[in-house]
């Protein structure tokens, strides 16, 4: 049901864009106003969210330790899973952000019966890690390739990326691997939610929606490049108009482009209010971005409450006679 609602919603977006540009002649709205507004919401939204996180205190240093601590000199520390300095922590974060280190640990549990003996078995389950990486890196590469539409001259790495991505030299226009991989990655992520009962159970509309939305973006993009063969020169005129804030809407741009850009705008607007903010959160997560060194370096709690223990004096007052009788030293004689 949740998946269905999300699908309907993405379809609705597509239809609105098609209708808006085709019948209602709203190409200026879809080509200029909507994208500009979306970028503003995206940036302001992210900044506010991150500032909101930053405003909250970090009272304790609570890394989740994933290996041997810094200890006696002859015991080998696992520096990247249990860092005790800032630079080790930096490396932990690099692994976390670039390679999804924690997800790489993933296992899957099954309960079996082997000759009447109960066996709780754990098998390695790196599929999620693999397809998640596939999706994210394809997405990243695609975003970077898009810079050719927004910059003049095009930065040096974009043609390089372009070449590498199309190195298979299949078809004309050349097939980008990232286009294929993002669709494969997204399809896997979607299917596992639909097919595996427990993932289906935990998924709500907010989980299907971004997947379907991004899939919609990817598919509309693929259509434009390989099937619709849209007029890229005209589109670059439009996109450059956006970045230079001198908007114009050249004639002859196919409706599929407006669908694409409407979906992208939706993603940008949706982003700051959704789980997609994991992009920022991963950097700020206190169980990952802090070293395990509270015993070595003091950490200050900005709101450290002023509480005192039940004092020794009160304790002795309570038990003095017994203590003397038992031969325990006391501060004050009875």
């Amino acid at each position: 049901m949740n998946a269905f609602y999300s699908l309907i919603f993405v379809f609705a977006l597509v239809l609105i864009a098609l209708f808006g540009v085709g019948a209602a002649h709203l190409s200026y709205f879809f080509g200029v106003i909507l994208p500009l507004a979306a970028v503003i919401v995206f940036i302001v939204g992210i900044v506010l969210k991150v500032l909101g996180w930053g405003k909250s205190a970090v009272p304790f240093r609570i890394p989740t330790t994933g290996g041997q601590q810094q200890s006696l000199d002859w015991i080998k520390q696992n520096k990247w899973d249990n860092p005790s300095t800032a630079s080790q922590t930096f490396i932990r974060m690099v692994f976390e952000v670039l390679f999804f280190r924690s997800l790489f640990r993933n296992t899957s549990v099954s309960l079996r019966n082997e000759d009447g003996v109960p066996v709780v078995a754990y098998s390695s389950a790196k599929w999620l890690w693999l397809f998640a990486l596939m999706f994210h890196y394809s997405f990243l590469i695609i975003v970077l390739r898009h810079l050719r539409l927004f910059m003049d001259p095009v930065p040096f790495f974009v043609p390089v990326l372009d070449f590498m991505d199309g190195i298979l030299q299949i078809g004309a226009p050349r097939l980008y691997m990232s286009d294929l991989l993002i669709v494969v990655g997204l399809s896997f992520l979607l299917l596992r939610r639909l097919v595996v009962p427990i993932f289906r159970y935990i998924s709500n509309a907010a989980d299907y929606f971004p997947l379907l939305l991004i899939l919609g973006i990817a598919l509309s993009g693929i259509y434009m490049r390989y099937f619709g063969k849209v007029d890229v020169i005209a589109i670059k005129e439009l996109t450059m108009g956006l970045v230079t804030l001198s908007p114009k809407v050249p004639a002859g741009i196919d409706a599929s482009f407006y669908v694409h850009i409407a979906l992208v705008s939706t993603l940008l607007i949706y982003f700051p209010f959704s789980k997609l903010m994991h992009m920022g959160g991963v950097f700020l997560s206190p169980t990952r971005n802090m070293p395990n060194n509270t015993r070595i370096v003091h950490h200050e709690n900005p709101w450290n409450p002023d509480v005192k223990p039940h004092s020794y004096e009160a304790y002795e007052d309570d038990f003095r006679e017994h203590m003397i009788e038992a031969g325990l030293p006391v501060e004050k004689q009875a």
Partner: peptide
């Protein structure tokens, strides 16, 4: 008081 709470409330992708 706890950034951990705020972040953990916001970023889970399920």
């Amino acid at each position: 008081k706890f950034r951990s709470l705020k972040i953990f409330m916001d970023v889970c992708v399920r």
